[in-house]
């Protein structure tokens, strides 16, 4: 095993641990923090199923964003579903074997996803640069994460189309990591660039606004049920037994 391999293997496990630990910690904190009152935005669903449908419509269709701004919605939807396609395309590096149909569609899905992600990011970056109100509310970190994602997507497309990497070696390396049986890292600089950027994203994720990925399910204005006048149930606050001043 070369020292390059050693470095990347260690970095991978560190990055993965930070992502997993950080993400789970944040989610745990979202979940355990009590909600003093029912603050669901109304008209709110009056049943658990209705509320689940409401949250799902935001998570899957970006319904509220659609109502708020179609231009952002187009870019965001293009980007996020492209990302989903790309995750699908990368499944082969974590799980193997996969069913036959996977191999038949993965190229199409992957290329479509890659293009969607790039278009989506360029679109959203364009808004940050050229739309005055959006530019006003953007900090360095808002641009940074878009550029990071763009660099990941671009380097990915590059090793797919221009400077083709040895994907058998990549697969061996990745599956080795997943199976806790590390193999040598492919010494292709373009692959290493792509891989390094992804590791950076993993580490950055739990400390950033990317936590909206889990947070969306914990927003009380959407996930609470409007049953506050029910005689059968009562929402109890964390101040239930405290005395008022």
């Amino acid at each position: 095993m070369t020292s390059l391999s050693m470095v990347y293997i260690i970095l991978y496990y560190i990055a993965f641990a930070i992502l997993l630990g950080g993400f789970l910690f944040k989610i745990w904190r979202f979940a355990k923090t009590p909600a003093p009152l029912v603050i669901v935005g109304t008209p709110g669903a009056k049943s658990g199923i209705g509320t689940a449908a409401r949250v799902a419509s935001d998570a899957l269709l970006f319904r509220s964003l659609f109502r708020g701004n179609r231009w952002i919605w187009v870019g965001a939807y293009c980007f996020h579903f492209g990302l989903l396609f790309l995750i699908f395309r990368h499944l082969r590096y974590f799980v193997w074997p996969l069913p036959m149909w996977y191999s038949q569609v993965e190229q199409l899905v992957g290329v479509t996803g890659g293009i969607m992600v790039v278009i989506g990011i360029v679109w959203l970056l364009g808004r940050r640069f050229f739309h005055a109100r959006t530019r006003y509310i953007s900090a360095f970190s808002d641009y940074f994460v878009l550029f990071l994602l763009l660099a990941i997507a671009a380097s990915g497309l590059l090793i797919k189309f221009r400077v083709r990497t040895d994907i058998i070696a990549v697969k061996t390396f990745m599956l080795g990591l997943a199976r806790l049986h590390p193999q040598p890292v492919p010494a292709d600089p373009w692959f290493l660039l792509h891989f390094s950027l992804v590791l950076a994203l993993l580490v950055y994720f739990p400390f950033s606004k990317l936590m909206h990925a889990g947070g969306i399910f914990f927003s009380p204005t959407r996930n609470q049920i409007d049953w506050t006048r029910s005689t059968e149930r009562r929402h109890v606050s964390p101040f239930e037994n405290t005395k008022s001043a």
């Binding site: 923090t33 909600a35 003093p36 606004k209 914990f218």
Partner: peptide, 17 residues
């Protein structure tokens, strides 16, 4: 003690909607 604040501080993506 306030889930809303806890979540809202972390998850805004500055989309501009």
């Amino acid at each position: 003690t306030n889930k809303a604040l806890r979540v809202f501080m972390d998850i805004c993506v500055k989309c501009g909607s």
